[in-house]
Simulated assay, not measured.
Amino acid sequence: MKAVVENEHGGPEALRITEEPTPEVGPDDVLIEVSGAGLNRADTVQRKGKYPPPEGASNVYGLEVSGTVVQLGEEAARTSFLKEGHKVVALLAGGGYATQVVVNQAQVLPAPAGIDLVDAAALPEVGATVWSNLFGPGGLKPNGPEQKDGEQSVLVHGGTGGIGAHAVQLCRALGYHVFTTVGSQAKADWVRDLASRQEEANAQKTKPRRLGNLEIINYREQNFADIIEKETDGEGVRAILDVVGGKYLEDNVASLGLNGLLTVIAVQGGPSGELNLATLMSKRATVRGTTLRGRTSERKGEILRDMAGTVWRMIADGLIDPAVERRFALDDVQAAHEYFDSGEQLGKTVLVMN
């Protein structure tokens, strides 16, 4: 099979297409003929030598795929809903930049209805990341704010990234007031267009949802903490999903409301920052950092199943767009990473296998 393997680190030129043997299918595994593989920030950090695969994971790049089931292990065939020929998506610890991949059955979901199978590769990683970090204990309510809660707000940093675009759409569809940060007017326009398409799809439903408000903050021109303090009358937001890290720590905590939750999932702005513990204590707020890649197959499977019950339905209804802006052939993987590194990347980027 063709694959992009972890041999050396550096810029996009370090990526090479190689021929690798088809991975061995274990008892609980599924072999997938890959249609598309999503690119993620983690891939570029791995390429630079700063994010090695977990122990035992494939040395092939790629954390999410879509494709067709071609073989099941003995236990998977006995216990799984999956059958040969099923169209699926999968969340991986590695192995996605390849024409075939083997993954534990727990990490596989049916591809969502209503979208192209290649574009579906853009969903498992962002969907699981957003769901596991914003919803559940300590975070937002998966069914949206209850009437007694009043209007609740959430801050999503990086609204034009794959994770950010997904989080903005999902939170709005559930009725949360969304603040999101972007770095230019062009990027603000892109998020606004994505929101407009969501509103159009919602208006066509027999029973439209009450979509949450959206406020886009250009962080190069405005301080997001000041905007949030003003627009929430000083109450702050219920939750923050942050990919910046240390640079935003102080302003993030200032933006939290009482019992608020700040979740840091990346440190693009550095790993260290100042934290006023008195402010944190007075708000009874929580700051946590998480990663998804190293979790067990069982836990990843739980997250996927919880997430899909809500998100897959919204995708079918047109309320969540995979936001795939660029497709590249696998042979053009270097160009795909150059685009991702450029700072001009919008939404999701997908590698096409055939």
Rank of each mutant, 00 (worst) to 15 (best):
A167N: 02
A167Y: 04
V168W: 02
V168R: 03
V168C: 08
Q169D: 02
Q169N: 06
L170P: 00
C171L: 11
C171G: 05
C171D: 05
R172S: 02
R172G: 01
L174Y: 04
L174N: 06
L174S: 03
L174R: 05
G175R: 07
G175W: 08
Y176T: 09
Y176D: 05
Y176W: 14
H177P: 09
T180A: 09
T180L: 10
T181H: 09
G183M: 01
G183I: 00
S184M: 11
S184D: 04
S184N: 06
Q185S: 12
Q185R: 13
Q185M: 10
A186I: 01
A186E: 11
K187Q: 07
A188G: 15
D189N: 13
D189K: 13
D189P: 00
D189Q: 13
D189W: 07
W190L: 03
V191I: 09
R192E: 15
R192S: 15
R192H: 15
D193A: 15
D193K: 13
D193P: 04
D193Q: 13
L194C: 11
A195S: 15
S196R: 15
S196I: 13
R197D: 10
Q198D: 05
Q198C: 04
E200L: 14
E200A: 15
A201I: 03
A201F: 04
A201Q: 07
N202L: 06
N202R: 05
N202D: 07
N202F: 02
A203D: 13
Q204G: 11
K205L: 11
K205M: 09
T206D: 01
T206V: 00
T206I: 00
T206Y: 00
T206M: 00
K207V: 01
K207D: 05
P208Q: 01
R209Y: 14
R210F: 13
L211P: 01
L211V: 08
L211Y: 04
G212I: 07
G212M: 12
G212V: 10
N213P: 14
L214Q: 06
E215R: 15
I216D: 08
I217R: 07
N218P: 12
Y219C: 01
Y219A: 04
R220S: 09
R220E: 11
E221Y: 12
E221L: 15
Q222N: 11
Q222C: 08
F224T: 05
F224K: 06
A225L: 07
A225S: 13
A225M: 03
A225C: 06
D226F: 01
D226W: 06
I227A: 11
I227S: 07
I227K: 14
I228A: 12
